[in-house]
Design a protein around this nucleic acid. Structure first.
Lengths: 250, 250
DNA sequence: TATAGATGTCTATATCAATAGACAAATTTA
DNA sequence: TAAATTTGTCTATTGATATAGACATCTATA
């Protein structure tokens, strides 16, 4: 049998994605995988240019974008250095909680409530929560942050009748778990999670402080009480360059 | 409290991703989400141009790329029609199997063995399988296809000593489950799954028949026997435009 | 059979992306 | 201190990307 060929470090031209963007992505990937080590210097520009088969100026465009993003720092005469940390590993399982899973990887994390509103349930929200379409639901828009970096952006929907005032509780406690506890929910489980990925749109870019072209992981999930009552429908977006999802307790 | 603003259907300029590529991605997304319906006509080019705030010719570039990909069909004088099907929902859970989960969504699916080889275990493979680094492992390179479309591309590693000949079994049966059965493994469980997403690299583009700029979901997983012995370490890539991952039995 | 509405083709122009080469400026090393 | 290495800046050229407008061609419909 033949031996599978290794994936070449090559670049696609005329693809609608500029070479400098592709190379920036490769450098990000190399950092995430550990090929380029934190606090160490990247190979010099001429070496990278040869490695990727492009002009040195093209490599410089990629590097300058990553400097802009805060991933690299260039020093004239010395080299270009990796600043960025490794990706966080966000656990997803039966008892997915924001804070708990990141405890060991970060020194600080919290959830910010960006906005809240009452609205009629859309088709999918109604289905997820087992309500009639159009029933009143409360929507909470939140951002998760860890060590000063945005790591998630989520919308959560709750039945308005049952959870009236959860927006205030969330604003006060900064925790979904603590807010639900005020409504007598001491425990809840992840019933289902659907996962996809796409390019960040304009809203993601602003919310998660990303650069155009970035990728977001998207989860759509339903949380239920231990006896199976749906209590929360949510859609979360994670910046793929900063977060990987670790599916646990399967 | 303020009401969260809706994500605008807007476009990023000077991002390294050309406008036509971004619009092609948006159209793909709209199809996947059901905004543009299968077999129906897209809005006319001038309407799309206005909607996305670009020139009609830019929309035409996006459409012509998708026609090239086989997603759309343009007919002069009539309109542009959606050919592509919805995304498959690939289940991931304790008993993740390729064929079983896609049965109800597809009329035909199978796994192709592309290549196999014996190699020394890398650090992560050795860790995953609980072997010493450098121990001989068998690598199987496979592609999953459903209704004639590539839906996954995977590399699987098995301990060479214990599973000698699994490459031949795989070539013959076209099934990991059936091949493992020949070695006395009647059941196995998904122990862990780590998920990430990135832009498709050159290898992905060729293997999964994607266009540059496409996104792939990547899972790294370990399968174990019911009593916890690791038997398979795998890295799978799924084209995000064709597949979403449904995490079940959490 | 006109006419409106849709895609297809052409020309022209401005800007972005990529390559090429030369040299400056800062830092490290011999 | 001199040389080598590395990032920074500049000019120039080519091709891809995006906009703009005019008009052709095909289809469905009033």
């Amino acid at each position: 049998m033949m031996i599978g060929r290794l994936a070449a470090d090559r670049i696609e031209r005329r693809s609608g994605v500029s070479l400098w963007r592709q190379i920036a992505d490769k450098i990000l990937h190399a950092i995430a995988v550990g090929d380029f080590v934190e606090n160490a210097a990247l190979p010099p520009e001429v070496a990278l240019a040869e490695r990727y088969g492009v002009n040195r100026h093209t490599v410089r465009s990629a590097i300058s974008a990553l400097v802009q993003e805060g991933v690299l720092r260039a020093e004239q005469g010395r080299g270009t250095f990796v600043l960025s940390r490794k990706r966080l590993s966000y656990p997803i399982g039966a008892r997915t909680r924001f804070s708990t899973g990141l405890q060991e990887q970060t020194s600080e994390r919290h959830i910010v409530l960006l906005a809240s509103s009452v609205e009629p349930a859309s088709q999918r929200v109604a289905e997820g929560l087992g309500l009639a379409k159009g029933a009143d639901v409360i929507r909470l828009e939140t951002r998760g942050e860890a060590d000063g970096r945005a790591v998630s952006r989520a919308a959560g929907w709750f039945e308005a009748k049952r959870f009236a005032g959860i927006d205030a509780a969330m604003a006060e406690t900064g925790s979904i778990t603590a807010s639900l506890a005020r409504f007598g929910i001491d425990d809840y489980l992840r019933q289902s999670t659907v996962l996809s990925a796409r390019h960040a749109d304009a809203a993601d870019l602003a919310d998660l402080d990303l650069q155009p072209g970035a990728i977001v992981l998207v989860t759509v999930a339903v949380n239920v009480t231990p006896d199976g009552q749906p209590i929360q429908f949510s859609e979360s977006r994670f910046p793929a360059e900063r977060v990987e999802l670790k599916l646990s307790a399967l």
